[in-house]
């Protein structure tokens, strides 16, 4: 169950091997979380993530292997995670893959990015929301990105997929609100992780630890959108109003 401060006793992490997911699980297990279900693509990395969760204090661990390119299997994957957990207090959805400038016109790559960053997460979030509604309570935390707020050239396939997921999650939040289930969208700026290794950092760059802190404190609130760092909310309030000609000339 969630306690008075929104702290969970059980969590399902879809994308359980990501740096941000690891940092979130560390923090939650240091407080109340004991049941952790990690779903990811690479069994070896899942084992590492599970060992890290155990060190953080998890006592009941399960690993579920899935491939986010298999969009139609998303529902089954989510069901396996829920069945392994029992009561699920929080679902963290942190699945996505970055696109770059090297293969902007590669259709197969675009299809992959769209499937992993948009289609699979949408299907998984839908199933997770349905399971939480059946359960009568719970929180779905969707990892979006500030890239979703205004798409830019540098990673437009990824950013457009995040834009779709972000918009989807906001409406999903409305759809399930009356049931006692809540959906929260996290919009970090540039995060220094495995996924962004080698890329030049953008202004307001942040770390997995900072994003995880924001997720954990966000659990105590009912805010639908959480920006990391918070200042980005105001920065992007302005950036979305910029004329395209100026937007395209901005560095980073």
């Amino acid at each position: 169950m969630l306690d008075a401060f929104g702290q969970p006793q059980s969590i399902v992490v879809l994308g359980g091997t990501s740096d941000i997911a690891g940092a979130v699980v560390d923090r939650l297990c240091a407080r109340r979380c004991r049941t952790v279900v990690l779903a990811g693509r690479d069994p070896a990395r899942l084992r590492d993530a599970a060992a890290r969760a155990t060190r953080a204090g998890a006592t009941q661990l399960s690993e579920v292997v899935f491939d986010a390119r298999e969009v139609t299997a998303a529902g089954t994957t989510v069901d396996r995670c829920f069945d392994a957990a029992g009561d699920v207090d929080v679902v963290l959805l942190a699945v996505g893959v970055l696109s770059g400038r090297d293969n902007e016109l590669d259709a197969a790559h675009a299809a992959d990015v769209a499937a992993v960053t948009y289609a699979w997460p949408v299907a998984a979030a839908t199933r997770a929301a349905a399971r939480l509604v059946d359960q009568g309570y719970g929180r779905l935390v969707v990892l979006s990105s500030v890239a979703a707020v205004r798409v830019r050239r540098a990673n437009f396939v990824y950013a457009s997929a995040k834009a779709g997921l972000d918009a989807f999650a906001l409406e999903l939040a409305d759809t399930v609100r009356a049931s006692g289930v809540t959906v929260q969208v996290i919009r970090p700026g540039f995060v220094r992780t495995k996924m962004t290794a080698g890329l030049p950092a953008a202004p307001f760059a942040t770390t997995p630890a900072a994003v995880a802190d924001a997720v954990v404190t966000g659990l105590a609130t009912t805010d639908t959108v959480i920006w990391v760092p918070q200042a980005l909310r105001w920065v992007f309030g302005v950036l979305t109003l910029l004329p395209t000609a100026i937007w395209k000339r901005l560095p980073g």
Binding site: M1, Q135, G136
Partner: peptide, 10 residues
């Protein structure tokens, strides 16, 4: 004050 008389999903 707490969750003694709540029953989510029940």
């Amino acid at each position: 004050y707490g969750d003694a008389a709540q029953c989510a999903g029940g």
